[in-house]
Structures are given as structure tokens and as C-alpha cells.
């Protein structure tokens, strides 16, 4: 696999839900995007797969902050993941991937790795 990345447009601003998450499918698999309008920055993107259950559910967790860190709580077993670093607060050996995320006009765009065996389409 190469270290190359690409910017991928994944959804529109209207798809986002304030203080909560949505899931999108990317070249790197399922990603959860959180929109926290009372923070700067207000967009966060982490892997959607809960490492403790293997299920694609993190976008459906409750967001908030713990000791100042922005977090989402897994809806299955309630572990918290730092939205900036992906590190699990209960077990720092566990981490989910994080992705740079930006607004391009009305589009939400993500920077995701390009898998070498996958031909570039966008």
C-alpha cells in the first residue's frame, strides 16, 4: 500500500446532524463524521468501525467532551474515543483511524489513503 492520499467528497452540509454523527463510505471504508457546531473546528472524522465489537456503529454514538477532549461514546459497549486522535480513553492501546475533514462550499471532503490496488476513480 502506498502513502498516497486523496481528497474525497462524501456528502453535503445538509446531511450533517448537529452534535451528532453520520456514516459515509470512502475509499478507506466506513467513516463517521461528527458535526459539533459549538466547537472550533466543528467537523471530525474517525473510523466508523467500533474496534471492541467489530461493528460499524460509531457514528451512532453520543458525542460530548470529557476533561476537555471531544469524544464519542460507542453505542455498544460505551467506550469513549477522542475525536481528534482516535485514541480510546478507557484503553489507550486501542485507536481508531482519524481523517482530515474540510468544508468545500457545501461539500464535506475527507482526506483518505489511496489503496494501491484500487484504481483512482474520482
Amino acid at each position: 500500500m502506498s502513502n498516497k492520499t486523496q481528497w474525497q467528497s462524501v456528502c453535503s452540509v445538509d446531511d450533517l446532524i448537529a452534535e451528532s454523527g453520520i456514516a459515509v463510505w470512502t475509499a478507506d471504508g466506513p467513516v463517521a463524521i461528527f458535526y459539533l457546531p459549538n466547537r472550533i473546528p466543528c467537523l471530525f472524522a474517525i473510523g466508523h468501525t467500533d474496534p471492541f465489537s467489530g461493528s460499524n456503529v460509531l457514528a451512532r454514538g453520543i458525542t460530548g467532551d470529557l476533561k476537555g477532549q471531544p469524544v464519542v461514546a460507542s453505542p455498544l459497549y460505551k467506550q469513549h474515543f477522542n475525536l481528534e486522535t482516535g485514541v480510546c480513553l478507557e484503553d489507550d492501546a486501542v485507536q481508531v483511524p482519524t481523517y482530515p475533514v474540510l468544508l468545500d462550499g457545501n461539500n464535506v471532503v475527507l482526506e483518505v489513503p489511496v489503496k494501491s490496488q484500487v484504481k483512482e476513480i474520482a
Binding site: A18, S20, S53, S55, V57, R60, I62, P75, L76
Partner: peptide
């Protein structure tokens, strides 16, 4: 309702009970 949606556990948000595989 818009003001309440982000407050709920996933079960309340989607008005169903999440099982272990999502």
C-alpha cells in the same frame, strides 16, 4: 425533535434496540 435528537442513546435515536452486530 431537532433539539433533542443528539441527546439520545442510539436505541432512542433510532427507536429500536441495537444488537451486537449493529
Amino acid at each position: 425533535a431537532t433539539d433533542h435528537v443528539a441527546l439520545q442513546d442510539t436505541n432512542d435515536t433510532f427507536m429500536a434496540n441495537m444488537q451486537k452486530n449493529g
